[in-house]
Amino acid sequence: MLHIVNKSATERSSLDSCLRLATKGSAVLLIEDAVYAATKGSSAAAKIQAAAAGLKIYALGPDLAARGMAGRVLDGVNVVDYGGFVELVAEHRNCQSWL
């Protein structure tokens, strides 16, 4: 399953809920304001790195770049473009947007 999170982890609980309910081996794609969680020094960084042991973590590159965060991505987070976003949706049989 592909989980999509779009809200900043310091503003909403959606990332926490997603990580709590994503089965091992699932993919988590961070888009829009959620990409801050995937950057070095953020308060969610430890959470993301711990989750990366059981989940595949992706972040949308154009959203990172638009926020000045392109150079700060955590190790273990895969950066994808919109084409990569499309491939993730196609590869997984279902998806859930944690709005």
Partner: peptide, 16 residues
């Protein structure tokens, strides 16, 4: 940003 992201996703899907 929802409608913007959806639009860019749609365009990328069509390109693929």
């Amino acid at each position: 940003q929802a409608s913007d992201t959806a639009y860019l996703f749609a365009r990328a899907a069509i390109e693929k």
